Computed example of a mutant assay.
Amino acid sequence: MGKNGVHDLGLFAKIISINLIGTLQVLALAAEHIAKTEADENGQRGVVINAPGILLKPMLMTVSEEFRDGLATGVPFPKRLGDPSEYAQLALSIIANDYLNGDVIRLDGALRMAPC
């Protein structure tokens, strides 16, 4: 239950399909291709970067401006939602750093989602 009644099951299924099943499918296909590439001099074959989080990307743009503004007020610093260019900048840094491996980096302005 939410503030407006029972959650829309169709919307939930769509979000799960995109964010969970879609992510798994992309990772599986990418891993298959990466495994077939020739390793570089350090034994590396590629980089996997996942889960861009709460950024102003197409899925978040489908919700109301009021909802996006509500999310932004919960961001401790800076007081805004992230821009896709910030994600791209981080991705380039991750790719350039061979010694970074198997880690979680949060790019979210320290946003922690409150319960509904």
Rank of each mutant, 00 (worst) to 15 (best):
I105P: 01
E41D: 15
L11D: 14
D108P: 01
I49V: 15
E32L: 07
E38L: 09
L27W: 12
G10F: 08
Q44R: 07
E41W: 08
E32D: 13
L55N: 05
S93A: 14
G70A: 04
I21C: 12
A28M: 14
M113H: 14
D103L: 09
G82T: 01
L11I: 14
P115L: 05
N19R: 02
L92Y: 11
Y99C: 07
A30F: 10
Y99Q: 04
E86A: 09
M113F: 11
G43P: 03
A31Q: 07
N101E: 02
G22E: 05
A31H: 08
L24K: 12
S85M: 12
M1E: 05
D98T: 15
L29P: 05
Q44A: 04
T37G: 05
E65I: 04
A96K: 11
H33V: 08
A31P: 03
S85C: 11
I15K: 13
R112I: 11
F67M: 11
I95F: 09
S85R: 14
I21W: 11
C116A: 15
G2I: 08
G82V: 01
A28F: 12
M113W: 11
F12M: 14
L55Y: 08
L90C: 02
G22R: 09
G2D: 07
V48A: 07
I94Q: 06
A30I: 06
S85Y: 10
L20A: 06
G22M: 04
Y87I: 03
I105D: 02
Q89T: 13
E41S: 14
E32H: 10
D108L: 00
N42V: 02
D103Y: 12
L27Q: 15
I94H: 03
I95P: 03
F12I: 13
L111A: 07
L11W: 14
V47P: 00
A39F: 03
K36E: 09
M59G: 04
K3H: 15
A51L: 01
R106I: 06
A39T: 02
M113A: 14
N19C: 05
A96C: 09
A30T: 10
R106K: 10
F12N: 12
L81E: 00
E41C: 08
A13Q: 08
Y99R: 06
I105K: 02
I94C: 09
L56Q: 06
L11K: 15
T37E: 09
P76S: 05
N101G: 03
K3E: 11
M59F: 08
I95Q: 10
N101F: 07
P84M: 02
Q25W: 13
R68P: 01
L27F: 15
